[in-house]
Simulated scan of single mutants.
Amino acid sequence: MISSQNVLRHELIGLDVLVSGAANPSHKGLSGRIIDETKNLLVIDTPRGVRRIPKMYSIFAVRLPGREHVEIDGSVMVLAPERRINLHEKKRIP
């Protein structure tokens, strides 16, 4: 089950997100649903259309199932999603 402790080991597509901090002031405050993820971008479906937000200089507040929110520094997510998920899984194995 996805939680604030293991969010980086899970798929983010489909989760609601708020850009709580960004180097680009026009990105700050954007909210919507994550519809795609690449190595460097989160693609968010907002009420004003689809936006591509760079991970590197952004902070994302992600709403997890059960209404729990977690803030994620985008710089720790700068990997292809499949590599990010596998990397964190390997660290967990003793």
Rank of each mutant, 00 (worst) to 15 (best):
S58K: 04
E11N: 12
G49S: 14
G49M: 06
K28L: 05
I59M: 14
N6E: 07
S58P: 02
K55F: 07
I34H: 10
R48A: 15
H27C: 06
K28R: 03
I44C: 08
R48F: 15
F60N: 02
L42W: 01
L42C: 01
N24R: 01
V19N: 02
R9D: 10
A22I: 06
L30D: 13
R9V: 07
D16C: 00
D16R: 01
V50C: 04
E37Q: 12
P25G: 07
I59R: 11
V50D: 13
D45E: 15
F60C: 02
I34M: 11
N24F: 04
S58I: 07
P25W: 07
L18D: 13
S20F: 12
K28P: 00
M56H: 07
P25R: 07
V17L: 06
V7C: 01
I53V: 15
I44S: 08
N40Q: 12
V17S: 07
V50N: 11
G29V: 09
I53L: 06
H27Q: 13
K28G: 05
V7Y: 04
A23M: 04
A23D: 10
M56L: 11
P54E: 15
L30C: 09
I44F: 10
N24W: 03
I34N: 12
V7D: 00
R9T: 09
G49I: 10
L18N: 11
I35V: 10
G29I: 06
L30V: 08
A22D: 14
S31K: 08
V7E: 03
E11Y: 08
G29N: 12
I59T: 15
R51E: 15
R33Q: 12
G32P: 03
V17C: 04
L15S: 02
K39E: 14
L8F: 02
P25C: 08
P47Y: 15
D36V: 09
R48K: 15
S58E: 11
G32T: 12
V50S: 10
L42K: 00
I53K: 04
L42I: 01
T38G: 08
